[in-house]
Write a protein that binds this DNA or RNA. Sequence first.
RNA 1: GCGCCAAUAGCUCAGUUGGAUAGAGCAACAGCCUUCUAAGCUGUGGGUCAGAGGUUCAAAUCCUCUUUGGCGUACCA
Length: 507
Amino acid sequence: MIEKIKETFQESIDPDQIKLAPPPQKEMGDICAPVGFLLTKTLKKNPFEIVSLLAEKMSSVSEFKDVQPAKPGYVNFFYSESFIEESVKEILENEKALDFNPIEKTFFLEYVSANPTGPLHIGHGRWAALGDSAARLLKKIGYKVYQEFYVNDAGNQVENLKKTVEALKSGKPVPEDGYHGEYVQDALKSELEPQAFFLEEQKKTLEKFRCAFDSFYSEKSLHESGAIEKAIRLLKEKGVLYEQEGALWFRSTDYGDDKDRVLIKSDGNYTYFAPDIAYHLTKIERGGDELIDILGADHHGYVKRITAAVSALSEKKVKLDILIGQLVNLFRNGDPVRMSKRSGEIITLDEVMDEIGVDALRYILVSKKHTQTVDFDLEEVKKQSKDNPVFYIQYAFARIHSIKKNIEEKDYQPEINFKNLEESERQLLLFMLRFKDEVYKSALNFDPQILAAYLFDLASLFHQFYEKNRVIDQGNPVKYRLAIIETVSKVLEEGLSLLGMAAPKRM
RNA sequence: GCGCCAAUAGCUCAGUUGGAUAGAGCAACAGCCUUCUAAGCUGUGGGUCAGAGGUUCAAAUCCUCUUUGGCGUACCA
């Protein structure tokens, strides 16, 4: 529908400059375009004159029953009933109405990537919820997405963990730089090596959290396969490495970094950075057209160097987006809970999931912009669970199916006839026509929050509709309202699934 | 010191590429269940968009400076 408006404007304006938005008040129209300001100079007319002309031109388009110019320089559109009917018919009768065309491009999405030295915590949960929902959204709009967890199973952290476990087994005190949390005890019971044990635990947690990783990529395997040497050789060929004071450096400042970085230390060992470069090289080699890394804010100092490395390796052809997720500060009754694995206390992601449920947790973690730090009080969330937005949305879905349950199958005959809509019905239907646009915007911004907010607003409009209008009136189903609730049901179900949430028919 | 991210109602947060009178939820107060699930709906009160300049028809949004907070700044991982 946006395209049609753009086409009409095209003769006089660059279509990319046209923006559409819902007007501040519904009396003003169904959708509006602040377009009068764009041409004041070229046409030498004031904004309102321009807008008046355009409104007249547009009024013949069948999608609209009315098009009006507005004060400073807006055009306000009112959709025709037949347009709404056509659109709803498409959603209800075409299985693929909410699908997008496939695009030949693969996103390589890396997220969580926790050290295998303990259980996942709430911060990991945030990247998990964000990454998994972003993946679902990108797939929805037609991209291929490969989701991967990078396992840091080769560094000092793992060595320290092993030392800790050995010390515990032989009854010795835990080393200074070891792990002091009680959870380490769990690894003693397992026959697996401790890092393998914790990786398995993390996989179970992620599965429970409904994250579908395509693979878990081992850092150790990079050392064993010679991938690191290969990456360094490649960089050497490109002439971006040099030796100084016995160490091998990458001239990352050529690609926007603040300082050059060491790859091989003067003692001959790799820095952490070296295998990470090799890892990103494998993503490019494995067909990633565009890479996305989701990192916690405590690693943001890493952004420039890894971006530099990907630029150097791919000759700037592969784009790397790094999403910096701000941290989650966990509280209990107002007191901060420490989340360091080295300190004693840790609240695991598993525990939080058990307390408030997967649906609620996923929604909470995704309903806030990832650029915002989240203060998360466990007791508060438990208290509020009844007022939690996720229940509000799911309740809308449950109400619809409760209505359907009360109707005999032979009487269930939705009819798309919207000639005499109540205002609440009209608003609800128009809002649903925005669904695909919202999904698209949400996906391309890697921001599930946009969809989460949309679903909340949709639920709100449905509840209003439900209060004002009877679907079953005096025992008789109102056919056109069946078409409305059927559409809401379809959109809600689709939207919830994109956030990895259930759509329960009964609550 | 330098860098990244933030600051919007009492609290938690929207406001996405600059658009009309800045919005929800919670909390507070006042109403709505003989009819499809009240986990719902309706109404009231609540704001120096951290502060100061600037850019333009138009700024919570973009630029500069200041203040406050989180994080980072290793030949650690």
